[in-house]
Write a protein that binds this DNA or RNA. Structure first.
Lengths: 156, 156
DNA sequence: TTTAACTTGACAAAGTATATAGACTTTGTT
DNA sequence: AACAAAGTCTATATACTTTGTCAAGTTAAA
């Protein structure tokens, strides 16, 4: 698994929209690309592409025209970190032969000593990122101002 | 973490040399590039480069000239899977700001909610691959002929 | 009518992945 | 001394990915 800027930007954008959703108790108001771009320091045109991907995958909704923009399409509780990483940066698995989202058969599979190891790595990664929702992340962000973040992460 | 062909080839070559070391109870005999290339189905000239890297990093030794070749430079017990992955395919961490081997500072570090998560992922991956030695792998390979591999992996 | 998202397509610099080619050096054998 | 076998070193090639930028229009909502 590698987190590229694309993935990082996507996560931060969604985190921004999630925070707003929670603060305003709903997805009625829309954030514009420019607003997100400035707040999160993401190149505007790049962000355009990223939000479009997030929209096509059903994580955000958009409204065109004046007062338009983006809002989150589901409760942040129901969007997991792993979902966004997989969408933007590809499969979590270190190698395709153990991937659930991008499996590719390998000739040596049955006799390969490494395969079960890659599978364990895959499970370990999934076990973390598929159990962290964007609601978690928003809570962690507000908690960061008060107490150590480390404790919170390990308490999930 | 992504395992590329380079990393995969390196692991398989080292596994080949480890098996020979264990079988022959020492590193006295040398395996030639051609031999490894054929046995493990690795492009010859690519393997050449890979073995050179492994040599420069101190994992294998070589002998030039006729009857030369490669042999493992340490006990397979003391070489961990993680060592080879890091050497050939780069850091295990999903992002540079939590890497121990390739750390890069990020401006947002102290306030970043994601950092501790990437750190957990990093620890999870390291926890697996840094606890599997090439002796383990050789044992797993011979065990595969008899019983299910799955049990063995989870027993480490 | 204006604003802002949507669509499409092209372009480009930098880096990574996956090799291949060729010349050179060292060693053992004849 | 000559030669063949084997590792060493450097360069090159091709394709793909990353990280964007630019332009030129289309559609929808206030």
């Amino acid at each position: 698994m590698k987190i590229t800027f694309k993935g990082d930007y996507a996560i931060k954008s969604l985190l921004y929209l999630s925070a707003r959703y929670i603060r305003e108790r709903g997805a009625e108001t829309y954030s514009q690309i420019q607003e997100i771009s400035k707040d999160q320091d993401i190149p505007l045109k790049f962000l355009e592409q990223i939000l479009l991907s997030l929209k096509n995958a059903g994580f955000v909704r958009s409204l065109r025209g004046k007062n338009g923009g983006y809002t989150i399409a589901r409760d942040p509780e129901d969007i997991k970190l792993g979902d966004i990483i997989r969408l933007m940066d590809g499969p979590l698995s270190p190698i395709a032969c153990v991937s659930k989202s991008a499996y590719q058969k390998c000739d040596f599979e049955p006799r390969c000593v490494l395969r079960p190891i890659w599978a364990r790595v895959n499970d370990a990664i999934s076990g973390i990122v598929d159990n962290i929702s964007f609601r978690h992340l928003v809570e962690m962000e507000s908690d960061m101002k008060k107490k150590s973040i480390e404790d919170f992460v390990y308490q999930i």
